Amino acid sequence: MAILVTGGNGYIGSHTVVELLNLGHDVVVFDNLSNSNLAVLNRIETITGKQPEFVKGDIRDSKALDAVFAAHDISAVIHFAGLKAVGESVALPLSYYDNNVCGSLRLLEAMNKAGVKKIIFSSSATVYGSPERLPIDEQCALRTTNPYGANKLQIEQMLGDVCVSDAEWSVVALRYFNPVGAHKSGLIGEMPNGIPNNLLPYVTQTALGIRDTLSVFGGDYDTHDGTGVRDYIHVVDLALGHIRALHLLDSQTGFEPINLGTGTGYSVLDIVNSFESVNNIKVPYVIAERRPGDIATCYADPQKAKTLLKWQAEQTLDDMMRDAWHWQSNNPKGYDA
């Protein structure tokens, strides 16, 4: 039996594949390489001594998905594949609905046809929009502020409806807060194509001199230093959360949303200060206008994950900054080196 990982060559996907292989799982990666690199597979093999089977394909391609399920004995799916930038989703909403929502629909159809009814969905704290309270627990109102968050919420609703229609389905929607850092080996990490949309790649690329300055979007939020506050979580902690969620799939059915975060909020300037301190390097920055769809403060109540998954984040903010720089400084051109 194998685990199918859509988007498994991507940032979070590759770290999760490492943890799956380390535990002895057979893994099939399905990825269209639109924001990832084939070289990730060799890096994964260097870390684990094993390489997952790779299938190049798009989750909107029903025939390709059917072929994967026909060719492999799949026991469960971990679904990462999707476009993931808030700002880009505001500019290109139709692309996001097509890729993320329609692609997830095609995936669920293929799973249903193959009789595979266990899935972990890569959701997001953006489903809470501007949160009604802090820290954010799973009972908070769901009210998105951008198309990316709307995509995640619509897919969650689709998954919930599937569980209502068929009691055999077991679904965990992991609502991530802000994944950062990299594997301690420095062999895999976050390297987006083009200009980064997430904070840490922009910080590391600025420290490396690839970017002249870091743009801090918004300096007038109602926070302790005026910059946006987020719950940053080490990507390896996040990957381990998926391993715990696999166990939950085996013990219950129905739809289960679970936050994955640390429960602590840090501002953009907190991140910059930690990065500079841990790595002894300066990061020049400028305060820019707010981005459409962004909110002031967002951090998790992670109690449900502790209770249901027996999981909690272990790595500190300094660990995240150190590992992010280890990856970037050793791979200045990412996987294209």
Rank of each mutant, 00 (worst) to 15 (best):
R211T: 12
L92V: 12
L153K: 11
I136P: 00
T6H: 09
G218W: 03
D61H: 05
V40M: 05
P52G: 08
V27A: 06
G219M: 09
D222M: 11
N178R: 00
V162I: 09
K56S: 11
G57Y: 14
F69I: 08
S95E: 14
F54R: 05
I78G: 08
V27D: 10
R230A: 07
P131W: 02
E53P: 05
V236T: 07
D73T: 08
V27F: 13
I281F: 11
G293C: 09
T253C: 07
G24V: 10
P192W: 08
V5W: 02
D318E: 10
H183T: 01
N112Q: 09
D26N: 15
P93D: 04
V127H: 11
D294H: 08
I210F: 14
Q328K: 03
G228M: 09
D237H: 01
A67R: 04
G189N: 06
F177C: 15
S122K: 01
K113A: 01
G8A: 07
G129Y: 03
T227G: 02
E19D: 12
G10E: 05
N198V: 07
H247Y: 12
G115S: 02
V216C: 13
E190W: 12
V236H: 11
D294P: 06
V171Y: 04
A39V: 13
D270C: 04
A2Y: 04
S36D: 02
I271D: 08
W327Q: 05
E45M: 01
Y96M: 10
L174T: 05
G49R: 05
R290V: 05
H247Q: 15
G265Q: 02
R106Q: 08
E276D: 08
E109K: 06
G103A: 03
D231W: 06
G82M: 05
E156Y: 11
Q157T: 13
A76C: 09
D137Y: 03
P147H: 02
G82V: 04
T6M: 08
V235A: 02
R230D: 05
I271V: 11
L105V: 07
D250I: 06
E88C: 13
N32T: 06
A85K: 10
V216N: 06
S251H: 09
R291D: 12
E314Q: 14
K63F: 12
R244N: 15
V40T: 04
G293F: 12
K152A: 04
H224F: 10
R143P: 05
N198A: 06
H234C: 03
Y299P: 06
L92M: 14
I233E: 13
L208Y: 15
I59L: 00
I12N: 11
S104E: 04
L308E: 01
E256Y: 10
L4I: 08
L246A: 11
A141P: 10
K304V: 13
S89D: 01
D66T: 00
L92F: 13
A2G: 04
I258A: 07
G87H: 06
L249K: 02
P93Q: 06
L214C: 14
P135S: 04
N35M: 00
N146R: 06
D323S: 03
H326A: 03
G189M: 03
N273E: 15
S251K: 10
K56D: 13
D212E: 15
I120C: 10
S14V: 01
G265M: 02
V68G: 05
T206K: 03
N9F: 06
Q154F: 10
R133F: 09
